[in-house]
Design a protein around this nucleic acid. Structure first.
Lengths: 142, 142
DNA sequence: CCTTGCCTTCGAGCGCGCTCGAAGGCCTAC
DNA sequence: GTAGGCCTTCGAGCGCGCTCGAAGGCAAGG
């Protein structure tokens, strides 16, 4: 069960180490590699409107540094529990232009609060877990 | 999207405030109320082997303080991302008796590590989020 | 007696977030 | 020419964790 969590941390490392310089372009495979998601997921995100990606002459996707930044941002939000529907809302707001800045800010602030609550919950659960480890060796009653 | 997170925190408060004294028995409705889960979920957990619950003369479920402790423990683990299949494994180990204590300990320790990693990820994502809030007002590029 | 209300079992359904497979295009290497 | 490899679109499928609804039991209250 730690697999997905480890994957997430691994992805974070890769994302930080793979920021493409401005002007770089990436194929879907390179993008997937750097962002730590699958090509399938990138196509899916595009299908549902989270991304809008340019094509080359052959119809293949071409990602730029801005796309990379967006994908990283989206994965950060996903990682912290923001559902796809909220990502879509956020992206739609961005597309609406400057007028939507206050609402975007509100979303981010609300999400920040949600993350803080998650942090508290995790701390609490960690204490429960550690208490159990040190005192009972794993019996089901605390 | 904060709904589920808030719910979790609310449940934590209720769980702490609702520890039944030893000897108490609870109906499924009372149990659901105190533990902050639905009766449907309690039946589901029982169906998949996470719980084994006594019945009264009429065939209705009767929960005791030990059941309460187990449900709270299970919800803590779920809350922190342990999948159902691992809970089943853990519960099966408990049923196996003392011999399984080392393996249970290993599971808890592994889970503790997973929680710590989650904490780190959340911290990181929180920083990303706060950076965005303070510096860009919500533009998609960081 | 009959309603009400909470309980039982069982199987089916749902929302989410991917994940995959089929069918085909285009480019390069042999 | 043709095989390999990576890409395209599209729709369908999957695993998870519930969530619900149907059909019925039983006990108390009017």
């Amino acid at each position: 069960m730690t697999a997905s969590v480890d994957d997430a941390l691994e992805r974070l490392r890769r994302q930080d180490a793979s920021v493409p310089p401005p002007g770089t372009t990436l194929s879907i495979a390179e993008m997937a590699q750097r962002a730590g998601v699958t090509a399938h997921t990138l196509r899916y995100y595009e299908r549902i409107g989270l991304l809008e990606v340019a094509r080359d002459a052959g119809g293949h996707r071409v990602y730029d540094a801005g796309d990379y930044a967006r994908v990283v941002f989206l994965t950060r939000l996903r990682m912290t529990g923001m559902p796809i529907r909220d990502l879509r809302r956020y992206v739609a707001l961005v597309a609406d232009g400057e007028a939507s800045v206050p609402e975007r800010l509100a979303m981010l602030q609300e999400h920040r609060d949600a993350i803080r609550i998650q942090l508290m919950e995790l701390q609490l659960a960690l204490e429960t877990d550690e208490y159990k480890i040190t005192s009972y060796g794993g019996a089901c009653a605390p």
